[in-house]
Write a protein that binds this DNA or RNA. Structure first.
Lengths: 156, 156
DNA sequence: CCGATTGGATTGACATGTCAATCCTGTATC
DNA sequence: GATACAGGATTGACATGTCAATCCAATCGG
């Protein structure tokens, strides 16, 4: 009983399933990113930023909030916003409320681009993911993902 | 009946499940990569290369075979091998059989490094993935992953 | 009033990946 | 024998991300 069961090794079969799982998720992500890129000239990083801003009040978020929502490091966001600003998708301005803060606002072009991109993208998600699974399998995905998230202590 | 059902949009609930699925897989990958890095100073790309070479006959593969096995572009592999060779993990030499080919061989250091890295890594996989799931869930993962792979036309 | 500190964001150097262009060496064609 | 062309790998220019260092305006302590 002092015998701890921690740090066991996976069996060959478990390892196979693990590899399949992670490779498949990766392939799926890659496939969708490729389509998004060719349909809308947006990377998935661009899409993530545009999505959050679209849903935000007045299409505006403080830079740090945005970073937290997406789960990026500040510096990554800064670099990325620089590139997106150059393309005219977003605009940065000092935040009137918070002395140090910066307001990131979706431009009209950004909003338009997102709207045009999101429809085919969502259809792609349906086609490549939803269509692949039976309703039971779909429920199983939800369940098992939830189990993993709890195990990893991820936020809901 | 001329009414095609293709290109439907996901429901809000389906979208939530999709996002959870892909985010969780990503988080899991990231978590494991971090551990691998701190335990063995190996990136997951390094690990992938070392793994294939370890399992190969005479610890050697032709560059192009290796690329195909891992599913990388030639140029990526070339860059990566350059870096790994500098660290003494692999060695490249013209292939005697094939005039154009290059043999990539695992060095003793590479083999040793891989052996030392793989044990804790596999334990991490067990801890973060296998431990999170019941046997039934495990079987379900296998099943729906398989369904996804078929849908995406991925090789077994 | 001055120096230290803090919060928020940016910057720069560097690692990794992608795409297109190039290199190199045998082999085929005339 | 010279010329093109093939297969295989490398290279270079560029995009994206990471980590650590810095900037900059406010605020605090004395």
């Amino acid at each position: 009983m002092a015998q701890e069961k921690r740090r066991a090794m996976p069996t060959r079969e478990q390892l196979r399933i693990w590899r399949n799982y992670i490779e498949t998720a990766d392939a799926l992500r890659t496939r969708l990113e490729g389509r998004l890129q060719s349909e809308s000239s947006l990377s998935s990083a661009d899409y993530r930023v545009l999505l959050e801003l679209s849903e935000a009040d007045r299409r505006t978020l403080r830079s740090s909030e945005l970073a937290a929502l997406i789960g990026w490091q500040r510096s990554r966001l800064s670099h990325h916003l620089g590139r997106m600003e150059k393309r005219g998708l977003v605009h940065r301005a000092p935040c009137p409320d918070d002395v140090h803060g910066i307001d990131v606002r979706l431009t009209d072009l950004g909003a338009e681009t997102f709207r045009h991109g999101s429809v085919p993208h969502l259809r792609d998600v349906h086609e490549l993911f939803v269509d692949a699974l039976t309703p039971e399998q779909f429920a199983q995905v939800d369940e098992f993902t939830e189990a993993l998230r709890r195990h990893l202590d991820l936020e809901p």
